[in-house]
């Protein structure tokens, strides 16, 4: 068994490359999904009906669709629209679109729990539209939604593993290749599991930092 781990260690550059891909994919898509989700949340809570209906439809569709199937559709579907994407970009796009819906729903839920007075004061002092959202509404919202957003980031890390199916060289894919070449399944996949666990610890540290900022203002 120790020998197996030695084999994995010998292949560590492959493993680390996979880890790096997972990390970059997760960070980029989490950030993009949060920004786009904040914009989509504006549509979800709009005064007029039309944007709400469209946004709600999109969010509900993504929430009821398994990510792997959606990734397949992006991967196979985009070329037919004339967009040539390699599997890395297809994976990134799939993660971003899918999680934009989830982030929007999270922010909408958090917004419903916020007291209305500070936002009203913002309007009374002349803040409007995007400025109102960015300077008055969004910051307390993000502070309050920290833990839930953190949870979703962990989901993103785990969803990235599905992309091994479209041959994206992320962490699970790396472990699989080491396994199939050297027949060390336990060592290879346990190493991957530990690396995923460390990534989650990283996310949770970030969430705690946001939690401390929130506590200072609570």
């Amino acid at each position: 068994m120790i020998h197996d781990f030695g084999v994995v260690w010998a292949e560590r550059s492959l493993m680390l490359n996979g880890l790096l891909n997972t990390l970059i994919l997760s960070v980029l898509s989490a950030f993009a999904a949060l920004v786009l989700g904040a914009l989509l949340a504006m549509l979800l809570t709009h005064k007029t009906k039309a944007p709400v209906v469209v946004a709600r439809g999109f969010v509900d569709l993504m929430r009821c669709t398994p990510f792997l199937l959606f990734a397949y559709i992006v991967y196979y579907g985009l070329p037919s629209l004339g967009i040539k994407f390699d599997n890395w970009s297809a994976g990134l796009v799939a993660l971003i679109i899918y999680n934009t819906a989830y982030m929007a729903e999270i922010l909408r839920g958090a917004a419903a729990a916020q007291p209305p007075e500070p936002a009203e004061a913002g309007i009374a002092f002349g803040f409007t539209g995007f400025g109102l959202y960015r300077r008055i509404v969004l910051p307390p919202l993000l502070l309050a939604a920290g833990p839930v957003v953190g949870n979703q980031v962990i989901q993103i890390v785990k969803d990235s593993a599905f992309l091994t199916i479209i041959a994206l060289p992320e962490l699970t894919h790396a472990a699989s290749s080491i396994q199939s070449r050297h027949y060390v399944p336990f060592a290879a996949f346990i190493s991957a599991v530990i690396l995923y666990w460390l990534l989650c610890l990283l996310v949770e540290t970030g969430v705690s930092a946001v939690g401390r900022m929130a506590d200072a203002r609570r």
């Binding site: 007075e117 500070p118 009203e120 004061a121 009374a124 002092f125 002349g126 502070l143 203002r217």
Partner: peptide
């Protein structure tokens, strides 16, 4: 227009962040 009218709220409505 609203910057020319100040308002003080019953529940303060300060911006918490």
């Amino acid at each position: 227009m609203r910057t020319r009218i100040g308002m003080v709220f019953q529940h303060f409505a300060l911006w918490p962040h």
